[in-house]
Design a protein around this nucleic acid. Structure first.
Length: 958
DNA sequence: GAGCACTGC
């Protein structure tokens, strides 16, 4: 590979300064191979490692320039982008050539941001079709709204934040490398498969026969041949319910006795006194202290529910439900009366409700309609130390509410680690400590670093199994593949031992069918030890009794947002010290336990963050920014984030929202944007729904509603490893030519037409759980639409209308065909591929233009969920980015002018209207993050943006 | 020609 040819010293490219970008929502995973495949030439491995990991290390990796590329893949892409740009130069556009002549001109382009018109003249790329018989030119504009002029500061966090504490540390390096045994196993399986295919076609048939009857798989090898989901409905939930209150203690003692036994009960009076004396109290309650169930009852007994409700937020739905149930039992009231809960799709409260448990997302939505949260006298934010996105936003919001409402009490509960941070955030609020009731856990560290965490974990499990007394083992792994490999290896190596003691090996991860998940709660036969190999799901979401040993690999998969690429990446990352303690604590729930960390004590101390980077600093915020805007937060700099999100994340989100038409050129919410906040989903999907019901004769809200719901659930297609061909064939039956979105629509329609039967799903390799959930979501969106008097209309058989509508929401993610199955993103010139599972893959007539739902980065950059569109639609519906010209220059010029004039005109009218109204929020005229100069220019030279207004023109395809 | 931690409205 020509290492030296890489233009390392390129300028930093970012959306804010005109660099490449990909808009939301994209979901990207970085494969481990990416980093192993690094060539030796050019740069040494350490430098590559350093450059790969860390956007936060803005230090000198390559001279004085910041390491513009966050990942190795980024740099590959940027390099490719550079070459593409060069290639584009050779195609016709003289203006573009002129611009490229001097690189400084490109550089200074961002300085011109104050004048959008100029940017428009200079910054477009001409994607003329190479083909002679296609006389169509799609021009791509490089526009920015004036309020994103690159000068305005939106946050106190200017630098990106690294997901790892030290990118050069052993653990960070091991995380990047991944597990060697897993890799070997993957290769081995591929070879086996190839050999099988080569020798006999009947081999697969045999596999199918075996696959069908493996429902009674013995527990020692549960991963080989997961049975088809027969009835995945609610067995998991059942076993969760069964699990609560199953211990000896809860069977023998009355509820009242149990309550009094809790540590929280002993400190009741003192706690109530502190709460009475302070507006905000931080309660440091360890696991088993009873804080979640008791705090609300104490407050209720102390009369706090007389003038309103006591609200208690939870980060997870199951927790909100099960805790509410428990408290209603303790108080001997019917669930839903005095004690109730509210989660998405389910409001189990009534007029009498005094104690309300809910997810934090619900409270956030409530604050949209009642910003002072008047219905509450007291709010408890439970598990705040987890720093979930919604919790963090709520904390900022409530801080403002507290200043307005002196009568409101806030109680934040946290683990020991971050208690002090919360106290500081709320102006030195007192910390109240409730001891926990857990058993001591003996913590052991590895003596030397373990390069392969899967291999080490397997050896540790076997060591425990043959040498330690009875007690079940819980292993923390990173993901499905690691888990399956660990299970198989344990089974294999155990079999090699001479007369080994019995061991039941149980994997668990969230994507596993529910009935298989439930197996981990079954009691093992006498004399059999259980080993559960789990992802993070076992860290907080579910608790298994009887765990005495914990094996912690020290890593987990973490979603990290890369604002520069506008993508999420899923990376294996070292956990934090807080995570490590939490994992270890799982061994001490029912008795004294032991925790084996597969890393050294030094690594624990020096290489791990004390606590994980809060979600708000490592996630796409388009949704959150929209929410805050609609809550009247004009200047994001003013919003009190406990940990502010990085600047680039905010600018990317603002840009995305502007490009969708949710924000004006001044950064204020448009009518469309305000409407979008009513829908609990990603902004592009919300726009889709709105467009689908507001396009008059070309409305198709019935169809779009289904598609959006299907996009909001995990994939409905079930693809068990051992029956790949069969399941693929089943999926292909649903294919709609030219569109994966329409394929999803077909699946849903067929499912309904077949009585929504689980049996039918099984037959066609579909996940019944996902389909049922899609139906729930569909109903909820339909209700919201009804409340906004948006019509539900079907377009009947004219599915072109649906595709146009899809185009109106996803035009920022559009690509043009470059080769067989290969496309390039129109705006970023990044090369993207059709995913082999797409309906468009291997179709005889690949479309020239497509839009896609998300990007997935694995071995290549894949578009997932793709729909063919017409170039005219892109220009009509995505006027911010595209315009079209046809049949040579004469007509072309006219055509383009026609479009941009139309858009400009509409925008001018709109801005005029806005001015007449005196600013859209009807406020004091302070504009979000807009410098005075930019505002002026914004008025003078409105940018052509009619995308949300231009009605789709039907039937323009050749 | 293929890989998805966990939440949430």
């Amino acid at each position: 590979m020509a290492e030296t040819a890489r233009p390392w010293k390129r300028r930093r490219l970012s959306p804010a300064n005109g660099g490449p970008r990909v808009t939301t929502p994209v979901h990207v995973r970085v494969p481990k191979e990416e980093f192993d495949a690094e060539p030796d030439g050019g740069l040494d491995a350490t430098a590559l490692d350093r450059a790969w990991y860390d956007a936060g290390e803005s230090g000198a990796v390559f001279g004085d320039d910041a390491p513009f590329a966050d990942t190795w893949a980024d740099r590959e892409r940027e390099n490719a982008l550079h070459q593409k740009k060069m290639a584009v130069r050779q195609t016709v556009n003289p203006k573009f050539l002129q611009r490229q002549k001097d690189n400084d001109a490109w550089e200074s382009n961002r300085m011109l941001a104050s004048s959008v018109a100029q940017t428009r003249d200079q910054g477009y790329v001409d994607f003329s079709a190479d083909n002679d018989d296609i006389r169509l030119h799609l021009l791509v504009h490089d526009l920015k709204p004036p309020f994103l002029d690159g000068k305005t500061i939106f946050t106190k966090q200017l630098e990106p934040i690294s997901a790892v504490r030290d990118p050069q540390s052993d653990m960070a390096v091991f995380a990047r490398k991944g597990s060697k045994v897993v890799k070997e196993r993957r290769q081995q399986k591929e070879r086996q498969k190839q050999a099988q295919e080569a020798t006999a076609v009947t081999g697969t048939a045999l596999g199918n026969v075996l696959g069908v009857k493996d429902e009674d798989t013995d527990s020692a090898a549960p991963t080989n041949g997961a049975p088809l989901v027969k009835n995945a409905s609610s067995k998991f939930a059942d076993s969760l319910k069964k699990d609560t209150g199953q211990s000896n203690f809860s069977r023998t003692k009355s509820l009242r006795e149990q309550r009094e036994y809790l540590p929280a009960f002993a400190v009741r009076e003192e706690l109530l006194r502190v709460i009475r004396d302070n507006q905000v109290t931080i309660v440091v309650g360890q696991t088993g202290s009873g804080k979640t169930t008791q705090l609300t009852q104490f407050l209720y007994e102390d009369g706090y529910a007389k003038n309103g409700m006591i609200g208690c937020t939870q980060p997870r739905r199951v927790a909100a439900m099960s805790v509410a149930k428990r408290v209603s039992e303790e108080m001997e009231v019917k669930l839903g009366s005095t004690v109730g809960y509210a989660i998405r799709f389910e409001d189990c409260t009534s007029k009498e409700t005094a104690i309300k448990y809910m997810t934090d997302g619900v409270l956030l939505r409530e604050s949209l309609t009642n910003s002072d949260l008047d219905q509450y006298t007291c709010i408890i934010m439970d598990e705040a130390h987890e720093r979930a996105l919604n919790t963090d936003v709520l904390m900022g919001l409530i801080k403002k509410v507290l200043a307005r409402r002196r009568d409101l009490k806030l109680i934040v509960t946290s683990a020991t680690m971050n208690a002090e941070r919360f106290s500081r955030f709320y102006g030195g609020a007192p910390e109240f400590f409730i001891p926990g009731r857990t058993f001591p856990v003996d913590i052991q560290y590895s003596r030397s670093p373990n390069e392969d965490y899967v291999d080490s974990a397997v050896r540790q499990v076997l060591a425990i199994h043959v040498s330690q007394p009875v007690g079940d083992i819980l292993v923390f792994m990173t993901g499905q593949e690691d888990i399956e490999c660990t299970c198989e290896l344990v089974a294999e190596r155990l079999a090699q031992l001479n007369d080994p003691p019995k061991l039941s090996i149980l994997p668990i991860y969230s994507q596993m069918p529910a009935d298989l998940q439930a197996k981990i709660f079954d009691r093992a036969d006498p004399g059999v030890r259980k080993v559960i190999v789990a992802t993070n799901i076992a860290e907080t979401s579910l608790t298994v009794d009887g765990i005495m040993y914990v094996v912690d690999c020290g890593f987990s998969k973490l979603k990290v947002y890369n604002p520069r690429m506008g993508m999420d990446t899923l990376q294996i990352t070292p956990i934090s010290q807080a995570n490590a303690s939490q994992r270890a604590g799982r061994a001490g729930r029912t008795g004294p336990g032991k925790a084996f960390h597969l890393y050294t004590e030094r690594a624990f101390r020096d290489e791990l963050y004390i606590a994980q980077i809060p979600e708000i600093q490592r996630t796409n915020l388009a949704n959150t920014v929209l929410l805050l805007k609609s809550l009247g937060v004009r200047d994001l700099l003013d919003f009190d984030f406990m940990d502010p999100p990085p600047q680039e994340t905010i600018t990317t989100s603002l840009f995305d929202l502007w490009a969708l038409g949710a924000l004006t050129n001044l950064g204020e919410l448009t009518d469309l944007g305000r409407k979008m906040t009513s829908f609990p989903m990603d902004p592009p999907l919300a726009k889709l729904v709105i467009m689908s019901s507001s396009s008059g004769t070309s409305a198709c809200s019935e169809e779009i509603l289904t598609i959006v719901s299907m996009l909001s659930v995990p994939s409905v297609f079930y693809r068990p490893k051992e029956r790949l061909e069969e399941s693929d064939a089943a999926r292909e039956k649903f294919f709609v030519h030219d569109s994966d979105h329409l394929t999803l629509l077909t699946v849903y329609q067929q499912w309904v037409a077949n009585g929504m039967r689980d049996g039918w799903c099984t037959k066609h390799f579909l996940h019944p759980k996902a389909l049922h959930r899609a139906r729930e979501i569909r109903q909820q969106i339909a209700d919201i639409m009804k409340s906004l008097s948006m019509p539900l209309v079907s377009c009947g058989y004219d599915l072109d209308i649906v595709r146009q509508c899809i185009c109106s929401g996803f035009y920022p993610q559009a690509a043009r065909r470059k080769g067989l199955g290969e496309y390039i993103n129109l705006r970023t010139s990044v090369s993207v591929q059709l995913h082999p599972t797409s309906a468009l893959f291997n179709s005889g007539d690949p479309p020239d233009y497509v839009v896609y739902h998300e990007l997935i980065l694995t071995s290549k950059e894949y578009m997932s969920c793709v729909t063919a569109v017409d170039a005219h639609w892109l220009a009509d519906l995505g006027g911010v980015f595209y315009s079209v010209r046809e049949n040579g220059y004469g007509a072309a010029g006219r055509r383009e002018v026609e479009y941009s004039k139309k858009a400009e005109l509409e925008e001018a009218i709109r801005i005029d209207r806005e001015r007449a109204k005196g600013g859209e929020g009807g406020g004091d005229g302070v504009h979000v993050g807009v410098s005075k100069k930019a505002v002026g220019n914004g008025f003078k030279k409105p940018v052509g943006r009619g995308s949300a207004v231009v009605k789709p023109t039907i039937g323009r395809r050749r």
